[in-house]
Design a binder for these strands. Structure first.
Lengths: 337, 337
DNA sequence: CTGAAAGCGCTTACAG
DNA sequence: CTGAAAGCGCTTACAG
């Protein structure tokens, strides 16, 4: 395995000092046109590429961002990987993936820190609040993606976050369902302690309450496809059925629609209206045409990158950015009248 | 930003040499029980973590594997990220993501090599055959995932690959469709020059030909959801319609089913049978229940990791591993008789 | 088992 | 603009 040439070897061939070759590859460093060309020529014939690891050791910037996720079943997250990775690549950063279950979360942080990452984005509702704090304590910029710092004052003041306006989104869903005349409205929850679920449900409940309508029934799907199916069966057991369900995310909403139609023989939206959250690509597929709340991955990623940069500069305070969201109506909610 | 403690500082606190602290963090190195404990204690109070970058510089192993992909729309690939990342993590390796379009593929390689990755897995049918060669030339182990080296003798002998048995899979689909009495069978192609498409179509055609049945019609969807919709419209235009379609992957097959049912008002499988390839999670969703050829992500990932290890050892030859595949029957192909 | 020393491949003051 | 030199944080022969 021929390892790549070193700056030393390039210097020798180009008849300049090693410093000169380093400068040639450092944007903004001062090298004469002549030296630069000699170096470039030599580099080319030797196939030279600066060793990013050695560079990082001395500059103290690895240009690596850790991305921590716990499950990719929900298509929302692959989209995040794609957009975030592309956006970061354009700026010379790269994404190091960490897949973490709830259990092995502590070890993950240790690994991340060993790589001297320049930042961490935690993009999963399923991560322990503890890990978030640990990261922040390490002094590495952290931005929580699609989740909010836990209630401890410490986390709030040391960690940035970007979420969409889950509370507002929950409200909009309740308003829509009420406007369409629904009164027996069920809620299918995700992970109960996740901030996404908490906020969506809070907004949803507020509006229902204000209208004097109680949540008709409630079950928990933990953001899992299979458990959401179970939860749907619960919701639609008994003689008196809901006439609408708000499901805490699209991934579960699709599971719910499958059960409703295939198992229970109910029609959507004629018998039941269904609303999701996220607007994953599958929500617009012909078989589902799910009415949902759109979270803009693009906007969220953009905010994340900006927050990362902010925190890499000294003396900036963490911020919690909230991205507006909106309802996209398709065919899973019955029409007015 | 408090940067982490160094081995030097730990050594001072523990009253040992820096070599001693290095040894306690190097599995298999010889340290007395006593020194080890002193070092561990000191490390703990200082929150010391070995700097992986500095270590890599000297060991010449970064324990980083580059994963190159070009699109994550097809849910098959997120699964690969998840499984591969988990498997590698267990062995102390990590995945650095590279999202690459067909155009900017050259720059990507340069970036990858700067990070001194220990291996590269190229997991996308959409990558230029050229990039594969470049990687191999750099001397870094490369394994092609779900694609095969191009026809040049050089690539064949320098690059490992893992694919499922696409050729056999294509044959099985043709056999199934023939057995169900279909004679007007269309093919909806993916990227025409990709090895997955080539092999699947070749196997498919072989069996049809042997049975004296010509491919009824053919269109190209380039593995894109939108283009697959277009292609489906082409296939089902005119007075004489196909009674079955083999679609080169599930992602496109779902697009096809949407068009068939929503736009064209055809029933699956009563009017048309549809078969896909991959068995992505969505294929089993209630609204589709797609009959398809399953490629085992687990087996493919396992083989990939093994191949990576093989190539990291000197003196091993690249291999092309072919994973068996099988048909899973659901409800998108009409029953016998 | 242990420490002093060399060195991995780079960047960056420091003099000129 | 340029080179010699120090040093980033580690590992690993080499002597003891």
């Amino acid at each position: 395995m021929k390892s790549s040439a070193t700056a030393q070897e390039v210097a020798r061939l180009a008849q300049v000092s090693q410093s000169a070759v380093s400068r040639t590859f450092t944007p903004g460093a001062s090298v004469s046109e002549d030296t630069r060309n000699r170096v470039l020529a030599a580099a080319k014939t030797l196939g030279y590429r600066p060793n990013a690891l050695a560079r990082s050791l001395i500059t103290r910037r690895s240009r690596i961002i850790a991305l921590v996720m716990s499950y990719l079943q929900n298509q929302f997250y692959p989209l995040v990987i794609e957009k975030l990775s592309q956006s970061l690549q354009k700026q010379g950063y790269h994404v190091l993936m960490f897949i973490s279950d709830l259990e092995e979360t502590d070890g993950v942080l240790a690994e991340i820190l060993q790589y001297q990452v320049d930042g961490i984005v935690m993009a999963s509702a399923m991560l322990s609040p503890d890990l978030a704090r640990q990261c922040a304590e390490s002094g590495v910029p952290v931005v929580l993606f699609n989740r909010v710092p836990d209630i401890s004052a410490f986390a709030r003041h040391s960690t940035s976050s970007v979420t969409s306006d889950n509370h507002r989104g929950g409200r909009m869903v309740a308003e829509l369902l009420l406007a369409r005349g629904h009164r027996r409205i069920a809620f299918l929850a995700g992970l109960e302690k996740s901030s996404t679920n908490l906020e969506r449900e809070r907004g949803f409940n507020e509006v229902l309450e204000a209208a004097g309508v109680a949540v008709f029934r409630r079950a928990v799907g933990h953001y899992s496809f299979e458990l959401a199916k179970e939860a749907t069966r619960e919701l639609f057991a008994g003689p008196d059925l809901p006439d609408a369900v708000f499901v805490a995310n699209d991934h579960m909403a699709i599971a719910a629609m499958d059960v409703l139609r295939q198992e229970l023989g109910l029609r959507v939206p004629e018998d039941v209206s269904v609303v999701g959250f996220d607007d994953v690509p599958q929500a617009s597929w012909g078989a589902y045409r799910l009415t949902t709340v759109v979270q803009s991955v693009e906007d969220m990623v953009e905010a994340t990158v900006e927050l990362l940069h902010e925190q890499m500069r000294e003396g900036t305070h963490p911020r919690n950015v909230v991205i507006p969201c909106r309802v996209v109506e398709r065919d899973s909610v019955r029409a007015a009248g």
